[in-house]
Design a protein around this nucleic acid. Structure first.
Lengths: 238, 238
DNA sequence: AAGTGGTCTAGACCACCAT
DNA sequence: TGGTGGTCTAGACCACTTA
């Protein structure tokens, strides 16, 4: 195992342990090299990989910072529904339901918790340009978000992943998604304003944090009458 | 503009010009450094980026090779439909139709050719485990694939992107895709063995080569009764 | 054994940012 | 102006592949 991987792992652990807060600066590369007793190039290799995984961001002349969750990051990395014509827009969210429940076996497996573990279930309706487009069902392990409530969810002025990060130290780094076409049930149809039986895009998302640990499940139903799911696979992180 | 970007651009052009063929070896990094009159580290930076864009592959102890299009690359980078339960499988393809046509305005725009330019239209039926799952409609600029014919398409023993690469020097590096849910028309329904009106996943793909030049359009209709579209966004190229 | 890519070092100089 | 990241160099040594 090369030395820069050791540095990377140590830095990742220290970031995950909130030694540096979201938006905060890491020590300079020279300082890290002194601390670890390595050449500066080795530190740079480690930081290069953290940058590629979007755990940190470099700012030339300024420093290296722990990546936070702002609206831009949500829009470009985690929100893949775009208008068929025209540019990306940020969604507005309305929380329709919030309740405590127990993890079903399939959910427990995907979240890597034991079956029956305490979870929160959240139903959100997302609108673009004032029209409802996405119906989300979230499943969150209570162990990671101990005091979550509908008030906390709706009171946030920022994105939900920003809330996870700043209030609970849960940093969503990437997601895996599976998509399929389904017929709208009556509940989804009325929420989205489409006829029952209309084709909808269903997205099953698992949100992952450090070490690909799953932290959130999300089932989305998308009305693709005027919107598409945009996928840009194979593009280097840049 | 840093020096290693110049090297990268020059290497990319030489690869695109088929100075080294798919599967062929580049000169060693030491030889490239001598040729360009730079340090070996600068060559490595350039090659690092070519690797990230999957233009070349390094093999430790052996050399650096122009990436070819084999079945594995197709499966892992360009074929995103997977069984809901169970692992990835390679599809079998049957060509249903092949004809010459003119590019419609929207197609011409996406392919960056003039409206009315000569194109080929290909209809393929893809099966997994012997059951039809995907109906593909390809649009290919004749300028890039001058002598393409149904015989050439069906006679190939390899993937279609392998054919593009080896016969026409067209190397598909990545794709962008837009997905939506639609109702099956009668033609697609009978080809896929579903009832008309069933929900299908529609995928609009643009395949891109060097410099993100578009080389192929593909409209896919996927029966997602037992398969999903798998999307792993945000994962570093690794 | 020879040649290749992979890691690590040590240092110089530059471009950019904050003050 | 001082500190930060970005580029480039030159060389040593290691790990792996090939023959």
């Amino acid at each position: 195992m090369p030395l820069y991987r050791d540095l990377k792992r140590d830095l990742t652990q220290r970031i995950a342990a909130a030694e540096w807060l979201p938006g905060g600066a890491l020590p300079s590369e020279a300082a890290l090299a002194r601390h670890y007793g390595t050449a500066i190039g080795t530190v740079r290799r480690a930081v290069d990989e953290l940058v590629a995984e979007r755990i940190v961001r470099r700012r030339h002349g300024s420093g290296t910072y722990v990546t936070g969750h702002d609206a831009d990051r949500l829009l470009f990395h985690f929100f893949h529904v775009v208008p068929r014509e025209g540019g990306r827009r940020a969604p507005t969210t309305r929380t329709l339901a919030f309740r405590r429940a127990r993890a079903a076996p399939a959910e427990a497996r995907r979240l890597q918790v034991r079956p029956g573990a305490a979870v929160f279930r959240v139903r959100n309706l997302l609108s673009l340009d004032g029209r409802p487009v996405i119906l989300d069902e979230l499943v969150l392990p209570q162990a990671l978000f101990p005091d979550l409530s509908k008030q906390i969810l709706t009171g946030r002025g920022n994105t939900i992943y920003h809330l996870y990060h700043t209030r609970y130290g849960v940093n969503v780094l990437r997601t895996t998604e599976r998509l399929r076409a389904v017929r709208a049930g009556t509940g989804a149809a009325s929420a989205l304003g489409v006829r029952p039986g209309s084709p909808l895009l269903q997205i099953s998302r698992t949100a992952l944090s450090y070490g690909d640990a799953p932290v959130e499940l999300r089932e989305s139903l998308v009305d693709t009458a005027a919107h598409d799911y945009f996928s840009d696979l194979g593009k280097p992180a840049a």
